[in-house]
Design a protein around this nucleic acid. Structure first.
Lengths: 340, 340
DNA sequence: TTTATTTACGAAATCGTTTTCGTAAACCGG
DNA sequence: CCGGTTTACGAAAACGATTTCGTAAATAAA
């Protein structure tokens, strides 16, 4: 079975390759009758243009890249879905890459894009990422980039974020109102802007309530699971254990739940927990988990729309350079104040 | 900033394009000295070959496609991760497509692959898919295809599955042993092989325990969320409500939990629930959810390895046509037999 | 020393589309 | 009826890499 291409169609119709090509693109240079003939044969033979040839000639591939640290996380999963919906609708294809929180991997992946493999990039930075030279390098080569959620401060690249500072503040304030006095803050990276923002919100809330901030209560968990568990156990069972936790990453909340079960600590009696999370099962957990729920899907959608805006009319940079879609705090049992 | 390609390198070095190309591929035709010169300049100028040109000429793109019904599902998320790990390791790129359980979308997506866009395809069928002509069409065009999890019976395409029949049996048997007598079976599609297998296991278990099978207890939920809720509510509050549920899809278990809370039905006292699921939070739910946990990551990995096997040495079809990786039943509180 | 073979490179065709440009033929106004 | 403009198409040059083939020079074999 030989593959069918423009040449096949052209010779079958007694036309030239260029005519067939133009006809398929509905060019005004081609007569209506010829177009009909071409379209019909193309349909009959089930012609599908070769995308590599097309990408080579036009200098655009109709492919975008999505680079995220992790996929086993409800936020990224939902964001990806938001991106994919828009991409599919716009007729774009989506390459997905996972960095597993590694800067090196992130750099390697982005480096390849210099080749023109993709028309644009949507990225959420790895936890290790402390500079974005590899990202701006792409932008300089004319490849549109949109950062979302895990952004970088002080760049002029388009950003899609949520109100992390405010949310960190509200989460902490919520715990304080539920009478927590020793509130811990958990994260997985201290280099991320998003973490710093949330943490700053946490600190501001403490200050505003005249509570001291203790370095011991601000934990950045290492990548390795076993180490995470050790450190967390130490925190929870130590003499200066917290009575409230702000989990800035979903994973750390899950870890907290697991350890509380193991250590027979009861939530919310002994420890109240609120987490940045998009877990669909948050309301079903034992106890149901209070969350700062980010507009994950919407952020993905916004990132995609912004990217396609940049791709399709590169000149007009009239798009907002920063879009902030607010999160919402949903109080549940894990932060409930119990009578007694 | 002009893009740098083989011609740039060649003229800068006073060599021909073909020599440079061969040097970069470490061809034996090129002298060691020349190779060194080429490699050094390529490194200095940060040359990255254009993948579209390369894909066009060789007839392979080093891109694979992953087509799945949904991404907001822990099984598919994990499987995707398994695939991505292998792909990254093998130097392949991964295009991701979501069908949202729609056959039409699935067909449209696959149709495009006839063009040679991808070197191979890993697919898990949509809930609507009742035939796989669109899949076999690709295979016939010489594009390797691997089906995983949601496979199709009676095809010779390579399959990666888990022991659905047996797991359906074990799940049901487990409920029976916990003294359930009216056990319902929930699914989202009755056309999927995987559903039929699980359901057959369910039926076999009933028969072996001399329990009747009632059609009213075997529910295929519609796609729309509101309808799902109505039907489930009817089931749970009706006069012939079940005392046990086998959820063949994670979503249906979550729905059950949500409704039980709303309807003030207590699990496991009034209703025991076991679900096919890979939820990381299953142990943390209220109550903790008994699951049939599928080897999602491993299945993804196996699918990818099988695919690359087919791609890289197309001739030897010595690979197993069917790989079955067993699931495990993890009993938790949601099916616990309470004293009294 | 002559012939055969290897070594190291370049010219050019090729992959399948897109796009520019050229040009017959048809059509137009005057 | 004649210069000028459309109209509708084809030839050919891209896009950037790969690969086949040809060939001078260098080396080996006889």
């Amino acid at each position: 079975m030989q593959t069918i291409n423009l040449k096949t169609l052209a010779s079958a119709l007694g036309l030239s390759v260029s005519t067939v090509s133009k006809a398929l693109q509905d060019s005004h240079e081609i007569s209506p009758e010829t177009k009909q003939r071409v379209w019909q044969l193309a349909r009959e033979l089930d012609y599908v243009p070769n995308p590599h040839a097309s990408s080579l000639r036009r200098k655009r591939s109709k492919i975008i890249a999505v680079v995220i640290p992790e996929v086993a996380d409800s936020f990224f999963t939902l964001a990806m879905k938001g991106i994919e919906v828009v991409a599919q609708q716009k007729g774009y294809h989506t390459l997905i890459y996972l960095t597993y929180e590694s800067l090196t991997k992130e750099q390697t992946i982005l480096h390849d894009f210099q080749s023109g493999r993709v028309d644009g990039l949507i990225i959420s930075l790895s936890g290790q990422t402390t500079h974005i030279d590899h990202v701006t390098a792409l932008e300089r080569k004319g490849i549109p980039v949109v950062l979302f959620d895990r952004i970088f401060e002080g760049t002029t690249l388009p950003l899609i974020t949520t109100n992390d500072l405010e949310s960190g503040y509200l989460a902490t304030q919520h715990l304080i109102r539920q009478q927590c006095r020793r509130i811990a803050f958990l994260s997985v990276s201290d280099s991320l802007s998003i973490t710093r923002q949330r943490q700053q919100g946490y600190l501001n809330a403490l200050t505003d309530s005249h509570l001291p901030s203790e370095p011991d209560l601000m934990l950045t968990l290492p990548a390795h699971a076993a180490d995470q568990e050790a450190i967390m156990t130490q925190l929870l069972t130590g003499p200066k254990a917290p009575d409230g936790i702000v989990a800035s990453v979903e994973k750390t909340a899950i870890l907290t739940y697991q350890l509380c079960e193991k250590l027979h600590l009861s939530i919310p009696e002994q420890l109240k927990v609120i987490s940045f999370s998009n877990l669909e099962t948050a309301p079903l957990l034992n106890p149901s988990l209070s969350t700062i729920t980010q507009p994950a899907f919407d952020m993905g959608e916004a990132a995609a729309r912004t990217l396609f805006g940049l791709i399709e009319r590169k000149s007009l940079r009239t798009m907002l350079p920063l879009q902030c879609i607010p999160s919402v705090l949903i109080p549940r049992r894990s932060t409930q104040l119990l009578a007694g």
